[in-house]
């Protein structure tokens, strides 16, 4: 079994920097031959999680940064994202699929992360999110 690929980066609250790190993680997944579905899910979850950290966590404050820890191995991809915000309780986010919320524009990011990742976990303070994706069996999807 190969040694997992690991890196840690600290970026400013800047969406272009966020995109650069996302691309770094995605190309690592592709190098490690994760399937298209895994890559799709990870790209979506990363976008939501890092943008949340920058916008809602750090409030776009350029003096605050986001730390991203990435570890990709044969079995799984793990990304841990920490912002410098006060944190939040994910339970406070209303269910976007409730009839009352269905036509409101916001509040779908966390739901999408949970749908596409194997595990999404927040720390107690709510300023660190862990995204874990186990490699799916059978890399060839039906479509």
């Amino acid at each position: 079994m190969a040694t997992p690929e690991r890196f840690r980066e600290t970026i400013p609250s800047d969406l272009q920097e966020a995109e650069r790190v996302q691309e770094r993680i995605i190309s690592l997944l592709e190098t490690m031959e994760f399937g298209a579905r895994d890559v799709f899910g990870m790209r979506l979850a990363l976008e939501e999680a890092i943008v949340n950290a920058i916008k809602h966590g750090n409030g776009m404050d350029p003096s605050k940064s986001v730390e991203i820890l990435c570890e990709i191995g044969d079995e799984r991809a793990l990304v841990v994202i920490t912002d410098e915000g006060p944190g939040f309780d994910p339970k406070d986010i209303p269910d976007p699929t409730d009839d009352d919320n269905l036509e409101k524009p916001g509040g779908r990011g966390i739901m999408l992360m949970k749908a596409f990742m194997t595990r999404v976990e927040y720390n107690e303070r709510g300023n660190t999110v862990t995204l874990e994706k186990l490699r799916e069996n059978g890399e060839e999807s039906e479509d």
Binding site: F40, R43, L44, E47, V51, E103, G106, L112
Partner: peptide, 16 residues
């Protein structure tokens, strides 16, 4: 090929 929740939000606003 890819779409974020922010894009969904914009589509909802457009639909409304």
């Amino acid at each position: 090929e890819y779409l974020s929740s922010a894009a969904l939000g914009k589509l909802i606003t457009l639909n409304n």
